[in-house]
Amino acid sequence: MTTIWELDFYSRPLVDENGKKIWEVLVCESPLDVKTQPDALFRYAEYCASTEVNSAHLQQVLKTAIAQAPKPPTRIRFFRQAMNNMITKACEELGIPAVLSLRTYRLTQWLEQRMQEEYPQHPGFQPGTNPSVSFAETAPQVLPDALRGEKWAFVTLEAAALEEMTDWAIAFGEGFPLRLAGLEPAALIPGLLIFTTRATPMAAWMSGLELGMVSFDPELKQLLLTTGVNNRWILASLNSSPLQTEAKNFTTAKQIAQGVHFLAIQASPDTEAFAGFWLLQDPKLA
């Protein structure tokens, strides 16, 4: 069974007795479906001195965490591009693939909790603004011809309906507990539904990527899929005003739903099974 960890290795608003920045390694297991109880999953935290900021030390911390975890990770997600080389090297030495990802939902929530409750209790706490993480946007890429949908539609589901996602026939996909986003059962979750006769190949291709979010770029007039943290793919060009209005309404609905939305792939509107179904969250709206 797949076990994915979320990882952060970065400085905190803390200093030691010599005024040097204190760093921290955080790891937590990703909840991979809507019914998982996040609080029951493994997590581990360890402070590090600024002199220990290297891949060798990170590797040792990860070994300690793995020794304490009920299951070792099969993959590790992280969101800080600045730490890409160090994290990737440490994980490679352990034989664990590491990928940049926007799907660090539980880690993001845990970081926010520690910013409010944990770090202010530390004697070396230095209050100040917490710099947000930004990702440089890349030019959108064209999807391979074999992976383009023939039809698509914006749809909406209640959060309560998505709680049954684990019971649906889904070939490829991933969810997360909606309570991580603080959503009530009656909340409306917007989504993009793609219909294509190549549904299974398209869903299989997408499952090999770190799906991040679906978004509308009003300047480019394009519906985009972000993978990793900033790789963008053109799902559709919206050349008419009615389609652009639909896309803007989709964006508004995402904002109301704390950035939560979904991407689904089906062979046709008549089938009940999904070739692919992913719950996603736009970090800029969370």
Results as ranks from 00 to 15, higher is better:
Gln116Asp: 11
Gln116Pro: 02
Glu117Thr: 14
Glu118Leu: 15
Tyr119Gln: 05
Tyr119Cys: 03
Gln121Asp: 00
His122Asn: 00
Pro123Ile: 02
Gly124Asn: 01
Phe125Arg: 00
Gln126Phe: 01
Thr129Ser: 14
Asn130Val: 11
Pro131Cys: 08
Val133Thr: 11
Ser134Asn: 13
Glu137Asn: 09
Pro140His: 04
Gln141His: 12
Leu143Cys: 11
Pro144Val: 09
Asp145Arg: 12
Ala146Val: 04
Ala146Met: 04
Leu147Pro: 02
Leu147Phe: 13
Leu147Gln: 11
Glu150Cys: 04
Trp152Pro: 00
Ala153Phe: 04
Ala153Val: 11
Leu157Val: 05
Leu157Thr: 02
Glu158Asn: 11
Ala159Asn: 07
Ala160His: 08
Ala161Trp: 00
Ala161Ser: 14
Glu163His: 10
Glu164Ser: 11
Met165Ala: 10
Met165Cys: 08
Thr166Glu: 13
Asp167Ser: 14
Asp167Ala: 14
Ile170Thr: 09
Ile170Asp: 03
Ala171Arg: 12
Ala171Phe: 02
Gly173Pro: 09
Gly173Phe: 10
Gly173Arg: 08
Glu174Asn: 04
Glu174Pro: 00
Gly175Met: 05
Arg179Gln: 15
Arg179Phe: 02
Leu180Ala: 06
Leu183Ser: 04
Ala186Trp: 06
Ala186Asp: 07
Ile189Phe: 05
Ile189Met: 09
Pro190His: 10
Gly191Glu: 01
Gly191Gln: 03
Leu193Val: 07
Phe195Val: 04
Thr196Lys: 11
Thr200Gln: 10
Met202Arg: 04
Ala203Gly: 09
Ala204Ile: 05
Trp205Thr: 01
Trp205Gly: 01
Leu209Ala: 10
Glu210Val: 00
Leu211Pro: 01
Asp217Met: 04
Asp217Pro: 03
Pro218His: 06
Glu219Ile: 09
Glu219Met: 06
Lys221Thr: 15
Lys221Val: 08
Leu224Pro: 02
Leu225Arg: 02
Leu225Tyr: 04
Thr226Leu: 04
Thr227Arg: 03
Gly228Val: 01
Gly228His: 09
Val229Ser: 07
Asn230Leu: 05
Asn230Ser: 15
Asn231Ile: 07
Asn231Thr: 12
Ile234Pro: 02
Leu235Phe: 08
Leu238Cys: 07
Ser241Asn: 12
Pro242Gly: 13
Leu243Arg: 13
Thr245Met: 11
Thr245Arg: 14
Glu246Gln: 15
Glu246Asp: 15
